[in-house]
Amino acid sequence: MAEMQEFWRWTEYNWRHPEMDWRQGKRIASGIDVGSVSSQALVLVDGQIFAFSNLRTGSNSPDSAHKAINGALKDTGMELNNIKYTVGTGYGRVNVPFANRAITEIACHARGANFMAGPKVRTVLDMGGQDCKAIHCDERGKVSNFLMNDKCAAGTGRGMEVMADLLSIPIKDIGDLSYQVDQEPQPVSSTCVVFAKSEALGLMRSGWSKNMVLAAYCSAMAHRVSLLLGRIGVEDQFFITGGIAKNPGVVKRLEKELGIQAVKSQYDSQIAGALGAALFADTLLQKGA
């Protein structure tokens, strides 16, 4: 049997600060975000990012948490017992064996976004693998209004994966390909991913190119997310975290629909949760918790 290509796959990696000497640090805190699709571990030394990893979540949360922290600590000389406080977050947050505390990903994403994009950020949109969160926060990254949609696959990375598989297109290429069309098509009308799939097949049969279908799906997703954001309202500045933040097919269409540009950050959008968790860990460490 020919090996099946997995079009939804993305690349794992880890990063460490090139100069920082953690042994000089006073406070070492970490955050572990075990999501439904990806897991991240991030280590802060005196409140500065020292190292992180971004990996796929395995079938078991404790293993994924260990893999993530081992990935972040790889070749740094730091050991797990050098970390003084760890906060777990995400879908598998209660299954992080070495965590001192679990904190919801809503609170962590807001805090992480505040660090990544600055204290002027008021609206955070997290488009994750199996959920979508809209958050308002204050200048310290404290949540003032939020909603989370984790019931329905529409508007989540999972919905995009279904489309990638259906059309046999690698997920990282979807955004760019969705702009290779002569004109922007009408969005796919079905919200439900199951019905959108049938609709996409129907569009292909009626002669649409794959890129047209991708454009129609990306714009449907952007529209859906903008409606969800409408529940809490969008206040400047606006920041997007999570895996779909890397898909310009959705992000640029969303910006156009909302009439607002998302703040760009030098950091990987997928680390926001782990970063927020690590920042809480650092705060709790300072408080002597």
Binding site: Q130, K151, C152, A153, R158, V193, V194
Partner: peptide
Amino acid sequence: QCTVFAESEVVSLIH
């Protein structure tokens, strides 16, 4: 509660 998520749940139940 979602068909797409239920598909994954069924697969992991089978596993």
